[in-house]
Design a protein around this nucleic acid. Structure first.
Lengths: 245, 245
DNA sequence: CGCATCGTTGACCAAGATCAAGCCTGGTGG
DNA sequence: CCACCAGGCTTGATCTTGGTCAACGATGCG
C-alpha cells in the first residue's frame, strides 16, 4: 500500500508550511507531477488544515478565498435549493482538488463527511503559483478536463439511468476512486450515509436501501456492516451499470 | 448587435488559415482575450470547417484528433447508452470550445443541429499552442472552470428539479447563452427539436410538450412558431426555475 | 397531393416518492 | 449491567409524477 499515515497537521490557527515531501496523498494529487523548485514553492504556500465531520471547507454563496488539496478523509460537494432540496455533486477523497471552478463565489459548499485533512492555499497565492509554474497550470487543466468528463458521466446517470443502474454505477465508481479503501479484494467503505448516497444519485433513502437490499439477495454484494460492503460479482454490477439487462 | 455575418468558410478539404481578425464569434470565444503574436499563431493553425445539420464533429469512442472552436450555428454534445438511451450533456453555440475534456478518446459525440461553422485545430498543434501561450492556457483553465460550474447546475437540475423547474431553467439559460437569439426583447430561437430538449432535461417529448403547453396557457411564454418562443413573464420563470412556488 | 417527420393531446401505467411503522446500533445514565 | 433513547436504516402500503402507448394534427418536401 502506498498510503503513508500522516502526522496530524499542526494547529491550523498558526499557519505553518506543509511538508509536501512527506505527504501521503501526493501520489494521487496534482502535486504528484511537480518536483524541485515548483514543489518547494507549493510547499511554502500550503497550510495544513483539518476539518471534523460536518464542518464546511467552503460555504455556498461565500467569497472564494481559499483553495484546498485534500490529503485524507472524505468530503461532499453539495448545492442546496431554497426549499431545502439537496443535490450532492460529488464526493472528494485524498488527492482531490477543491477550487477548479474558480468563480468569485462558491456555487456550492464543500463539507467534511469524516475527518478531513487538507492543504489550504490563499486564492492570491494560488494565482501567483499558477502564473509562475506552467507545469502546475497544465496539470490543473488536465484535472479540470477529467472532472468535466466525470460530470458528464454523472449527468448521463441522473438523466437516463434507473435506480438500479445508478446504484451499480455508484458502487463501481467508489471502488475505483476511494484511495483509502480496505485491502480486501472487492471490499469498500461507504463513509457517506444513505441520505448522502440518495442526494448524490437523485433518489430517496428508501430507494437506496431497497436497491441495496435487492443486490444483496441477488448475491451481487454483501453488506459486511452498514458502512462496509463487498462486491461479490463485479461483472454483474458492470452489466447493471450500463443497462445491459 | 455585435454579430457580424461570416463569409462562408472556404472548402474544408483544402486546409486554409483562418482570419481570426474578421471572425464574428471572436467576442464570445477563448480567442477574445488573445492579441498580437498569440492571435497570429492561433490564426495560422486554425482551419475553418463547416458541418451540415446532423453531421458529427467528433464521435463517441473515436480518437480525439481535433479540437474545435465554434464560430456559428448550434451543436449538441451527447452520450449514448448501449440500448439507445441518449443524454444530451450540453448545447454549443458560437464561441464555445470543444475538447477541454482532452481525453485520448471522446466519451461523447458532438453533432451539428443546424449548420455549424468552426475553427479546427489538430490536437498536436493545440498542445504546442497552449505550451507557447500561457495566456491561452489561463483562459482555457478559466473556461473549464465555468463549464464545471454549468455542469454542476445541470446535475442539480437533473437530480432534484421537477419537469416544470427543468423547462423553466432551460428557457432562461437559453436566453442567456445563445448569442444568435433574435433581437426582439424576450424572444428566443429553439434550434433544437423537442426530442433534443427532452434528452437534455432527462424527460420525454410528451412531457416537454405538455409543460410548454402549460406555460403557454399560464401566459408565461408565447409560442411564436414551433421553434421560436417569447418569454412574457421572465420573473415567473425565474421563480419556477428555483422551485419557489 | 401524398408521404414522412415532428409535435400535441389523451388514456393509462409504473418507477420511484411519500408516508408510516418497526428495527438495529451505539451512547447515556440509573 | 441493563433500560432507555436517538439517529440512521429497513421494510411495507399507498400515492404521484412523469413515462408509455396510441391517435391525431401540423409542417414541409418530392
Amino acid at each position: 500500500m502506498l498510503q503513508v499515515r500522516l502526522k496530524p497537521p499542526v494547529c491550523p490557527s498558526r499557519p505553518l508550511a506543509a511538508d509536501c515531501g512527506a505527504c501521503g496523498a501526493r501520489a494521487f494529487s496534482v502535486c504528484a507531477s511537480l518536483e524541485g523548485e515548483d514543489l518547494a514553492r507549493l510547499s511554502a504556500l500550503a497550510e495544513p488544515v483539518r476539518f471534523a465531520a460536518g464542518q464546511a471547507l467552503t460555504r455556498q454563496g461565500e467569497r472564494a478565498d481559499y483553495l484546498f488539496n485534500i490529503t485524507s478523509g472524505t468530503a461532499r460537494v453539495q448545492t442546496l435549493m431554497a426549499d431545502g432540496r439537496r443535490q450532492i455533486t460529488g464526493f472528494l477523497f485524498a488527492g482531490d482538488f477543491v477550487g477548479l471552478e474558480a468563480a468569485a463565489r462558491h456555487a456550492g459548499s464543500v463539507e467534511a463527511i469524516e475527518l478531513v485533512t487538507a492543504c489550504r492555499f490563499a486564492i492570491g497565492d494560488y494565482r501567483t503559483l499558477v502564473r509562475q509554474s506552467p507545469k502546475l497550470e497544465a496539470v490543473l487543466l488536465e484535472r479540470a478536463g477529467h472532472e468535466l468528463t466525470e460530470a458528464r458521466a454523472q449527468i448521463l446517470l441522473l438523466g437516463r439511468k434507473t435506480a438500479e443502474e445508478k446504484l451499480a454505477s455508484f458502487l463501481l465508481n467508489l471502488a475505483d476512486r476511494d484511495p483509502m479503501r480496505p485491502h480486501a479484494e472487492g471490499q469498500l467503505r461507504l463513509p457517506m450515509s444513505r441520505t448522502e448516497i440518495a442526494d448524490y444519485l437523485g433518489l430517496t433513502i428508501e430507494t437506496v436501501s431497497r436497491v441495496l437490499g435487492r443486490f444483496k439477495t441477488a448475491g451481487i454484494v454483501q453488506l459486511v456492516s452498514v458502512s462496509e460492503l463487498r462486491i461479490l460479482r463485479p461483472e454483474r454490477l458492470t452489466q447493471l451499470a450500463d443497462g445491459e439487462s
